[in-house]
């Protein structure tokens, strides 16, 4: 999927449209620190970009791309970057053309398309002329790929990180789960299916409060 800069939005239908203040609303934006808002895709903020110029030509490095991707957050877990989530598998840079290879977490993850879009928007802002985001299924994503940093961030966000299972189904399904607030293992599973595909709902007897776990896969 190659993305071009989007056309500017059509003129508002009202005659008083000139009075419309431009700019985005202040809805909480999971990616606010780094990524332009949806309707602002056409506007690339060069000040925020991080290009290297050589002989008057923009040069992107793979390190710069990885660093930028570290700032692209999961659409539903705004503290966790896609790199920490382990879904970005490969980056190749050829001149100002960037190809990112990613893999979905769960097959039915509804956020996949949004993740691709956020990657494209961020890399265009970095100065890429075109961005292709390919999706591969192999090797299949595992929750083991969530980085240590990602696990810390999940916990701070209130999601118990998944156990590292190394493919062992026993660990995947039955390992001890700890409350992300108090670390107690005095917890009860309330639903192995949570509000999103990747979560389960638990209850901590010590905090007397429910919490969610990022499910092992």
């Amino acid at each position: 999927m190659v993305v071009k800069l989007s056309p500017s939005p059509p003129a508002p239908p009202h005659s008083g449209a000139q009075a419309v203040p431009q700019g985005e609303g202040n809805f909480p934006e999971p990616n606010a620190p780094t990524s332009p808002l949806p309707a602002g895709e056409g506007r690339v903020d060069m000040a925020a970009a991080n290009p290297t110029w050589s002989e008057g030509r923009l040069t992107l490095t793979s390190d710069a791309v990885w660093a930028a991707l570290h700032e692209v957050m999961d659409p539903e877990i705004p503290v966790l970057s896609l790199v920490d989530l382990g879904v970005v598998r490969e980056v190749t840079v050829s001149g100002d053309v960037v190809t990112v290879t990613m893999t979905p977490t769960f097959s039915g993850c509804p956020a996949l398309v949004e993740m691709q879009r956020l990657i494209e928007v961020r890399l265009l802002a970095l100065g890429a002329a075109s961005v292709a985001v390919n999706t591969v299924l192999a090797p299949a994503w595992s929750s083991d790929w969530i980085s240590d940093e990602g696990r810390r961030k999940l916990k701070a966000f209130g999601l118990a990180p998944p156990p590292v299972h190394g493919g062992d189904v026993q660990i995947m399904l039955f390992d001890v789960v700890r409350c992300p607030r108090c670390n107690s293992d005095d917890v009860l599973v309330r639903n192995t299916f949570g509000s999103t595909l990747c979560r389960a709902i638990y209850y901590c007897n010590r905090c007397q409060d429910a919490f969610e776990q990022f499910k092992p896969l």
Binding site: A11, P12, P13, G16, A19, V20, E24, G25
Partner: peptide
Amino acid sequence: QEFIDEIVPELHAAGLCIPDPDLRY
């Protein structure tokens, strides 16, 4: 009011007509 101030420009930008003849900035 916060909501109105944010959503009105967004709806206009999408090219939609808000069903309120008295709406004004």
